Every structure is written in C-alpha cells, then in structure tokens.
Amino acid sequence: MNRGFLLQLYRVWAVGTFGIFMLVLTPLIVLSFVFGEKWGGKLAYKFLNFWAIGWASIAAIRYEINGLENISPNQSYIFAANHNSFLDSPALVWAIPNDFRPLGKIEMSRVPVFGLMYRYVVIMIDRSNGRSRLASLVEMKRRLDGGTSILIFPEGTMNKTPEITNLQPFQDGAFRLAIETQTPIAPIVVENSGKLLHPLEGLRVRRGTIKMTFLPPINTAHLDKKDTAALKQQVFDLMKSHLDKKQDILSV
C-alpha cells in the first residue's frame, strides 16, 4: 500500500480522535468548576491529563520525561518552557507533576469548542491591552500565593523555525514575576514536537516521541528587579546549551 496514503490515513485518524476527545471532555472540564476554583481546577486537569495521554497513545505519540528528580511536587514554581508546536501543551500537561496553570493568549479563546474549555484552564492575556497584562499579572501572583505553579512560554510566541533557531529571544515577564514573587524558576526543554507537528504545516501531524527535560530550578530569593535581565539570560543559556548538546550528538 502507498506510504503517502497511509500517512494521510494516520493524520485523519490523529486529528479526528483529537476532535472526539475535545467534544467529549470539554463539557466535563467546564462542569468541573461547579466544585469551585481549587477542587474544580484539580478535577479539570485530571480530565486534561486523560486527554493528553489518551490521545497521544491512540495517535502513536510518546512522551519521554527526564529530570523529574529536580522538581518537588509540593513546591510552587514558574515553569519556563520553549514552544515549537501545538503539541507542547498536552505534552506539558502530562509531564508537569505540580498543580499549575499556563499563561495563554486570549486569541485561543475564540476557537470554537476548544475556546470554551480554554477560558477555564488557563490564565488569559491580551498582550495588546495594558489592563489585560496587569490583570493577568495580578492573577498569576494570586495563584502562586495559593500554591499553584505557573507555566509560561518565555519566547512569547511559537517558534516558527525550530529547525533553524532552536530558541527565540526571551521576554522579561516570567523572570520579572519570579523575582517579584520570590518563586523558583524551573526551565523545561521540549524537543521534537516541532518535527511531529510543525507550526507552519497546519494539521500534518506525525507519530514519534516528544522529549521533555526538567532542568534544575533556579532560586530567586536573593534577587531583585535589577537582576531580571541576568536571570533571563541565565535561563536562556541553560536551555540553549541543552538543545545545542543534543544537536551536536545527532550530527556526530
């Protein structure tokens, strides 16, 4: 049988089953919040975990998680991850052992069906609106005070050319928040997701393995606002060094 036909059949299967999971689980995720923000959020993320691993298993996408020994499940962190694909979000939902909420763009809330669920499980930000940025900052601080970790993609947007530039320049937000709240910042390096679903290739998903590595967290208790740029560069260098080493190994 033609390999191209099999690949197209696989993509129809993968996208179709993702849609089925979304249609079935979105109402359950939304209804979870009748139990309140704390317990409803925990239940909603149980459903999201089931979605992440259930769909990945059906779509022949595997998750490889390294460095979990660096993370305490009872500690609040600001997780900082690189962002190469729409597959990053479900992979990180499965990988992160802590109760957390991601910071997400308000534009995603306009996607039919998915957007309904999205409004409940992320802290939304409209970067073009100063009030929205301030409100999201206040909300993230409140969540951290309550023991919930925050996931931020410090590149600010998805990397459209991960095969050329493995990291885009970081924005200040995650690092300023980490210093202001004296919260450890925990870098996460995500690999291979851009190859399985490239950001410029629509729904042309491929099977394979997404690798996620938790690097040792960085303590911010001794830092103040003037250290923001240095902290940002430190995290960038750590993540880039990890990615560069992997590329060097592959090129040997």
Rank of each mutant, 00 (worst) to 15 (best):
N2V: 01
Q8M: 10
A14V: 07
V15D: 00
G19C: 13
F21M: 12
M22S: 14
M22N: 11
V24E: 04
P27W: 04
L28Q: 06
I29F: 04
S32G: 02
V34Y: 04
K42P: 00
L48R: 06
W51Y: 15
A52E: 09
I53E: 13
I53V: 15
G54D: 09
G54W: 11
G54N: 05
A60D: 14
A60N: 15
I61K: 02
R62K: 15
Y63A: 06
Y63Q: 08
Y63T: 05
G67R: 03
G67Q: 00
E69Y: 04
N70H: 09
N70I: 07
I71M: 01
N74A: 11
A80C: 15
N84H: 12
L87G: 01
L87Y: 04
D88K: 11
S89Y: 07
P90K: 00
V93Q: 01
D99E: 15
P102G: 13
G104H: 00
K105P: 03
I106W: 08
S109Y: 06
G115M: 09
L116M: 13
Y118F: 15
I123L: 03
I125H: 01
R127Q: 13
N129W: 03
N129V: 04
N129K: 14
G130M: 10
S132N: 10
L134A: 14
V138G: 00
K141H: 09
R142N: 14
R143Y: 08
D145I: 08
G147F: 05
T148E: 10
S149D: 01
I150Q: 00
L151I: 03
L151K: 11
E155W: 07
M158C: 12
M158K: 09
M158H: 02
M158P: 02
K160E: 14
T161F: 12
E163W: 06
T165M: 08
T165H: 15
T165A: 12
T165Q: 14
P169E: 06
F170G: 12
L177W: 05
Q182D: 05
T183R: 08
P184G: 10
K195F: 01
L196K: 04
H198K: 10
H198P: 13
H198G: 06
P199C: 12
R204S: 13
R207L: 05
I210S: 00
K211L: 05
M212V: 15
N219G: 06
A221L: 12
H222P: 01
D224F: 08
A229K: 15
A229D: 15
K232P: 04
S241H: 13
K245I: 06
D248M: 14
D248G: 10
I249F: 13
